[in-house]
Amino acid sequence: MEEAFLQIVDENQNIIHKISRMYRDTSEDQEDLFQEIIFHLWKGYPGFRGDSKVSSWIYRIALNTAISTFRRKRPDVEYQAGIREEFHPRQTQEVSENEERMYAVLRQLNSGEKALISLYLEDYSYKEIASIIGINENNVGVRINRIKNKLKTILNR
């Protein structure tokens, strides 16, 4: 069982990295969250019957862990678009900077919005998102449109 589990997690670990980076600011907190997610996936693995896609199951547990962990609120760090754009890095750095900018933008959303948008960005259908979150499909559409508008506002600041 352990080998099969490790195979699944290994193949999908990018999901866990993304959730950790979106929900936590510092690399230390991200590492802790990554570990907690793996632990909860392992605890929940015997109950995974394969009714849903492996990636959906991983997303559900990963988002659950990120949301369910209570942390004292730290001062919010505002994303400053101008600061980053002063740099003209090499291409690899540019990719990495784009990523950092993306996470900085996403971190300005609340927990619920982060969960919805991550599933949307991953190209899940509204039906799948509704099933993972536990709300109806129509609500998913309305919420995603609102989040998109919010993101546009943040990006245009």
Binding site: H17, K18, R21, E99, L106, S118, L151
Partner: peptide, 18 residues
């Protein structure tokens, strides 16, 4: 950064694998 760029950054986002 536009929404499309956000989406493509999300898809391409990768960290050092464990």
């Amino acid at each position: 950064m536009e929404l499309d760029e956000l989406k493509s950054s999300w898809k391409q986002s990768a960290s050092n694998p464990k």
